[in-house]
Design a protein around this nucleic acid. Structure first.
Length: 243
DNA sequence: ATACATGTTGGAGC
DNA sequence: GGCTCCAACATGTA
């Protein structure tokens, strides 16, 4: 469910509620549910893995985390974390984090960090990478303050495409190669979006969950690497270890 | 059925 | 005070 492109799809699916008034709201958690009634959805945005439901004066931030689910019109089993009913349908969110943001969104979010946003700034990402030479690249690619919206699939696929070993030190990777990684992160975000929409995302995985390197045919390594200790699939032979 | 998975946070312990 | 590490959370699937 949750990487940035999937949240963009979610935003597109809920567009019909933009401009609509909340007729009924239910939920658990820190939100004052009663205060939502009769307020209008003035905009729908995303930043990284966050869906932002903009109301006058305030914004609801939905993060689906690892297991979050949503549905439109058809409730699922269990109690929704948030339910919003409009004249033209009902939106349900389950097992997600729901927060309220009262500050101006432009103060809270740096839109240039979001891979999916037109404001995405590759040069800024390169600069942030330059600033963390001691980090492992497998951790840096999951850093939401550098690549908002990227997740574990991005990490595995982009490191494989660019032939970079996940344990490479950011500072040891040549600047040109780092630039290529940044560019591929952005490119993969939009390929992910297109493939997910066409229901063929998994078919295009070259490394993630794979057992054998499609390039040289030797077995992939699977390990839980970096500070993030996330599942990593890589080829010791094809991916260069910069250290 | 036990483990694992597209993720983040909050608090303990340095 | 700040950094790091780990437990905790939530749910469907193999």
């Amino acid at each position: 469910m949750p990487e940035g492109p999937s949240i963009v799809i979610l935003k597109e699916e809920v567009q019909r509620f933009k401009g609509k008034k909340i007729l009924k709201a239910q939920g658990t958690g820190p939100i004052n549910i009663g205060s939502l009634i009769n307020r209008k959805v003035v905009d729908l945005k995303t930043w990284g893995k966050h869906l932002l439901i903009c109301l006058p004066q305030t914004t609801l931030q939905i993060h689906l985390l690892l297991f979050g689910k949503y549905s439109i019109d058809e409730p699922r089993n269990g109690k929704p974390r948030l339910l919003l009913q409009f004249s033209n349908g009902t939106l349900y969110f389950y097992a997600c984090s729901v927060r309220e943001i009262r500050e101006d969104l432009d103060q809270v979010y740096d839109w240039t960090t979001d891979l999916m946003n037109p404001a995405w700034d590759a040069a800024a990402a390169r600069k942030k990478l330059r600033a963390v030479p001691g980090a492992l690249i497998c951790d840096a690619l999951l850093d939401q303050s550098i690549f908002a919206g990227a997740g574990n699939i991005f990490k595995n696929e982009v490191l494989y495409r660019t032939r970079v070993h996940p344990l490479s030190l950011v500072g040891a990777i040549p600047a040109r190669k780092r630039a290529e990684i940044v560019q591929q992160m952005h490119r993969y975000a939009f390929e992910f979006l297109a493939w997910k929409k066409a229901n063929v995302l998994k078919k295009h995985w070259q490394a993630h969950t794979k057992k054998v390197c499609p390039r040289c045919d030797i077995p992939f390594h699977k390990a839980y690497l970096g500070k993030t200790k996330r599942r990593t699939f890589y080829c010791e032979s094809c991916q260069v270890h910069y250290r």
